[in-house]
Design a binder for these strands. Structure first.
Lengths: 334, 334
DNA sequence: CTGAAAGCGCTTACAG
DNA sequence: CTGAAAGCGCTTACAG
């Protein structure tokens, strides 16, 4: 099947390519009514559809953006992507989705390829491992927005959860419920994964604000696979916690798993709160108190920031950190 | 910042654009060692990166494919997308992800735009609402693969779960466990959502194979929002089911919600099996018996079929339905 | 009101 | 072994 080009339409309609182009781009200002009809008819008859690649080459805009997530399998990423896609769809933009798997090398490869493909901008959940690259992009004035994680060294608009507040809400509630020894469980604290870091520091602050001591023995930081073992140690010690804050949904899963294994009871044996809402929170037994991220709002804001930057050219040099309010979903696990 | 083009590199290296192009595309066959070095140096010094859009225009390949899902928020879609992305990444392809929301109009818009953007092929979870369009694509010999759902009228490679077998595994297990009156709950049976249809017809067959009668009163087909109400009616009737098969994860959620509300007990009051594995199956109480879809294998196969079609040009005209084996995850809910 | 021409940044057959 | 030239399918300033 030979593809139909603008030249074919022009010939078929007996006009020039320029005129067809004007028509396609709806610049009817000076176009005669008859010309318009002729072109319209030719397009319909030939089933012509413009080649956007060719247009992109000339116009230097692909109406496509890249989105690099750590892992699309995480519920939070999925929700953010969905919100971005919805927003982009409104603006007739498309999104290319990439999984960097927390690997700076993969991240760099994707960023390079996306730029080579001339995407108009990039949204990234940064690994933090490509400082020089990020800085280069900023210097080139290339449109980019970070989400979920921040990179303090780089001046980029960034959309984040108010992590400290999220933890504070959890601790406040636990204290209010009378818990005395609150523990926290988190995956390893890597420097680049700022939400975890902020949640842990928020934890210490929140305890202090509630006149509780921070006991390092009640903070477990461990690979997901080993959390259940560590949890056992944590709960066997004499001064064991009476409540636990799970730093994210993956950790919450491990805690619930452990509790089922050991036939413990929530909230009697242990109060539990998780950051990140989970699908089964409301019908689990007991229903689970969680602190949800407003993922859709965050995704929308991220897309909005990027598209504004791409379209308006509102060169507001100023870059900001946008912090979103967590939502306390109070249920029965504490 | 002026962008560096191939012409700049050529000038800087004192060679022609052709030579730079040869170098970039690693066609060193006839290239002098010195020329090579000069070009390499020029590229490094200028920080040149080829414009893939320009290349695409000439080569008629964008190394990008489109993926149209019903909704990226569904876990199954997410897993399929992840597998597709991994496979594409190996081949240096990118994926544009779109949500059609089961809306044929959105689906058509996306398909048209993706083609206009010259993607090399499209993977779609078809709404079924664009027969003419699908057929046009097939006729144009445009690379396309369907996944999750089939459209019988269209000759396209399609990757599916063996839905009848999935249900049979569930029914067989329930019968084996001594359940006598097995019910099934599903969202509305729309003609285009073939998995649901196949699961219901598989349900009838499986009952027959187990010498059980199919009682239409035990089949609930209802919008998600109303399922709990219908469930109540279902379980209030004298001849109520002693076990229920949930046609997908969304339905399972409603069933579990209802059971918790009514303080019923699984599996004593009611046996439960769900199609689609769920994150909390193993640590729910009781742990939930599910029939999992091999989503990653399915996604991988889908990507493989499409890329083969795009790359090899193995014009094997023959199109096939690929059925994947469900996995019975036997746990304690029946 | 419409068309001829140049150009976006590449690739590629061909000449030498 | 390397370069000049044409062309991919558009857009756009400019001429008329």
């Amino acid at each position: 099947m030979k593809t139909i080009t603008m030249a074919d339409v022009a010939q078929h309609a007996g006009v020039s390519k320029s005129t067809v182009s004007q028509y396609v781009n709806q610049r009817y200002d000076y176009m005669g009514e008859k010309t318009k009809e002729r072109v319209e008819k030719a397009i319909a008859e030939l089933g012509y559809s413009p080649n956007i690649i060719a247009r992109s080459l000339k116009q230097k805009s692909t109406t496509t953006i890249g989105v690099i997530v750590a892992n699309i399998l995480h519920v939070f990423s999925t929700q953010v992507i969905r919100a971005i896609e919805d927003f982009c769809n409104e603006a007739n933009f498309h999104i290319i989705v990439c999984n960097a798997d927390d690997d700076p090398i993969k991240e760099k490869k994707y960023m390079d390829m996306l730029r080579a493909k001339q995407v108009d901008g990039i949204i990234v959940f940064p690994t933090g491992g490509n400082l020089a690259l990020y800085q280069q992009l900023v210097q080139d004035n290339y449109p980019i927005v970070f989400v979920d994680r921040m990179v303090p060294e780089v001046e980029v608009n960034t959309v984040l959860l108010d992590n400290e507040k999220a933890v504070r809400m959890g601790v406040d509630l636990l204290v209010e419920k009378g818990y005395q020894r609150i523990g926290m469980v988190t995956p390893p604290l890597e420097e680049s994964v700022t939400p975890r870091l902020e949640r842990v520091s928020g934890f210490k602050q929140a305890l202090k604000a509630n006149n509780q001591n921070f006991d390092p023995n009640l903070l477990v930081s461990e690979e997901i696979e080993n959390i259940r073992i560590k949890l056992d140690e944590l709960l066997q010690q004499p001064q064991r916690p009476d409540a636990i804050l799970a730093v994210n949904d993956r950790v919450l899963f491990e805690i619930l798993h452990y509790i089922k294994e050991k036939k413990l009871s929530i909230p009697d044996d242990l109060g539990v709160i998780g950051i990140d809402d989970v699908t089964f929170a409301s019908f689990y037994s007991p229903s689970l108190t969680t602190i949800a991220q407003p993922a859709f709002e965050m995704g929308k804001k991220t897309a909005e920031l990027l598209l504004n930057r791409i379209q308006n050219k509102t060169q507001e040099k100023e870059t900001k950190i946008y912090r979103f309010e967590p939502l306390l979903m109070q249920r029965d696990s504490c």
